[in-house]
């Protein structure tokens, strides 16, 4: 039975959201994780706590405050509208921002602990061989943590696919715009369309299982457990 257009829209939207979010997560999470891995102090502890918070908060809490923040009458909402010409609340961009915040610990924590395990002595050796800090990161740190990058990106991607509360709060439920898989599934169940619901739910289970299987098989698992 072929998928109908509502399902295809939801799948496309979910993949797009998770891809954009993952790219941003790696881009923002890497320097943050590096900074956290090199420092120890009250400031870093506070930042770590902030990063880890989505792990224990109900997603709706985050969604609620983001919704208030993104409203057209706030400074953030107005600035966004001024810059882009469109409203932030209930948009794809809002979903991306929410997802990045919500999935941040899944990228930052594995990277941070991988960075911490790199012996300081190797970086010193690279420095004496003429490598600048950026060069050392590129030529020593990244090759030694390549697997962790893959793991962190996969976890970020999977977690974004799996979120529900945040996207429901800040995205509304607009088909083709903000209606991702998890919300489409919820809709199908609400309207008693169990065939479609089964297809989406079963598909998500297969996807998650396959992803986790490949992660567990390929890496030493201690490197990517998320700490709460």
């Amino acid at each position: 039975m072929p998928l109908n257009s509502a399902e295809l829209d939801a799948i496309y939207l979910t993949v797009a959201l998770a891809s954009v979010t993952t790219a941003l997560l790696v881009l923002l999470g890497t320097p943050l994780a590096w900074w956290l891995s090199r420092q120890r102090g009250d400031l870093t502890a506070a930042i770590e706590a902030l990063v880890a918070m989505p792990l224990i908060l109900p997603p709706t809490v985050l969604g609620f405050y983001l919704l208030l923040l993104f409203a057209p009458d706030t400074a953030v909402g107005r600035a966004w509208e001024h810059l882009t010409g469109s409203q932030l609340a209930f948009s794809f961009s809002a979903l991306v921002i929410g997802s990045v915040i919500y999935s941040l610990p899944f990228v930052v924590q594995p990277l941070q602990s991988a960075f911490q395990r790199i012996p300081q002595g190797l970086l010193q050796a690279a420095a004496t061989l003429g490598a600048s800090p950026l060069d050392r990161f590129r030529s020593v740190v990244i090759p030694l943590t390549r697997r962790t990058f893959l793991t962190a990106a996969s976890l970020g991607f999977a977690h974004t696919v799996g979120e529900f509360g945040v996207v429901l709060m800040i995205g509304g439920n607009i088909p083709g715009e903000t209606q991702v898989l998890s919300i489409a599934l919820y809709d199908f169940v609400e309207t008693l369309r169990f065939d479609e619901a089964h297809r989406l739910a079963g598909g998500l289970i297969l996807f998650s299982l396959a992803l986790l299987f490949f992660l567990y098989r390929g890496s030493d698992t201690s490197s990517w457990r998320v700490r709460t």
């Binding site: 002595g121 050796a125 004496t128 061989l129 003429g130």
Partner: peptide, 10 residues
């Protein structure tokens, strides 16, 4: 260190 032109054997 990376601009000093030294070699270091640890």
């Amino acid at each position: 260190p990376w601009r000093r032109g030294i070699g270091y054997v640890f």
